[in-house]
């Protein structure tokens, strides 16, 4: 029950702040839409006409997932930096619930809110390009949810590092291009990326949406790999976060910026 109270409270805070910063949120959405337009017109003017449809569909899904991963994962890093600057980070550490739980509920809240925006972006992209993907929610939503677990893990790693290395902004700027690479490069070209977080999940969703597959039409090994990948990144993320917290408490870094 306390978990639910915590989730409600943090989801509400994220929602209120998103509403108060609505122009920023809309500007960000517009930025991603413009990036999609860039990719779309690139395909129209210089792409291979024989694979036009597949390329456009690929770019729609990739832009949407890139924006979702970026906004969810970078969010937590910036969130920790902002809290430290404001002076509220130590106040969060006074909560008997534990900061990792607060952060987890914030990531979940942020993921839910960003997902709504990404659905808007998805439809805008499909409408612009005239390419309608098979959304297939019964298949895609479970895959996305499991994929999200690995995103949570990476988010915890970023949050932990942000606690002890306050000048992490530069890294976060670069990190968005790393995320872009992970989302856009197909597994068929770089199979080793299966070990990277969320790449397998994005690849599976892309396959489902482009080929209109159902849950049972994907190989079970894919689900196994996805679940293992997500579990490993979640555990790693929590270990890194707790280790960073410990270092911060030993060195007195929680209240410093």
């Amino acid at each position: 029950m306390q978990w639910l109270n915590l989730l409600t409270s943090n989801f509400r805070k994220e929602y209120i702040e998103m509403k108060r910063y609505l122009p920023n949120t809309l500007a960000l959405l517009l930025t991603f839409y413009i990036i999609f337009l860039g990719a779309f017109f690139g395909i129209v003017f210089i792409g291979d006409p024989s694979s036009f449809e597949a390329n456009v569909q690929y770019s729609i899904i990739s832009v949407v997932f890139w924006s979702l991963t970026m906004m969810t994962m970078n969010f937590i890093g910036f969130s920790v930096i902002t809290e430290a600057m404001r002076g509220t980070l130590e106040q969060l550490y006074m909560s008997p619930m534990g900061v990792w739980k607060i952060m987890l509920t914030r990531i979940v809240g942020q993921f839910a809110l960003q997902s709504v925006l990404m659905v808007i972006l998805l439809f805008a992209a499909m409408l612009t390009s005239g390419q309608w993907l098979s959304l297939n929610p019964v298949t895609t939503i479970p895959i996305i949810l499991v994929t999200m677990v690995s995103m949570v893990g990476v988010s915890f790693m970023i949050a932990g590092l942000a606690i002890i290395v306050k000048q992490i902004q530069a890294f976060l700027q670069i990190f968005q291009f790393v995320l872009m690479g992970l989302v856009f490069v197909p597994l068929s070209i770089a199979p080793f990326l299966v070990f990277a977080p969320f790449v397998k999940g994005v690849n599976m969703v892309r396959t489902v949406m482009m080929e209109n597959l159902t849950l049972t039409q994907l190989p079970w090994t894919d689900y196994g790999i996805l679940a293992a990948n997500s579990a490993i990144y979640l555990v790693l993320g929590l270990i890194v976060f707790h280790r960073c917290e410990k270092i911060a408490m030993q060195k007195g870094l929680l209240g410093q910026y």
Partner: peptide, 12 residues
């Protein structure tokens, strides 16, 4: 006030 109370696990 509501946010910090929620962060301590209090119910609505």
């Amino acid at each position: 006030l509501e946010y910090f109370a929620g962060n301590r696990g209090l119910s609505r």
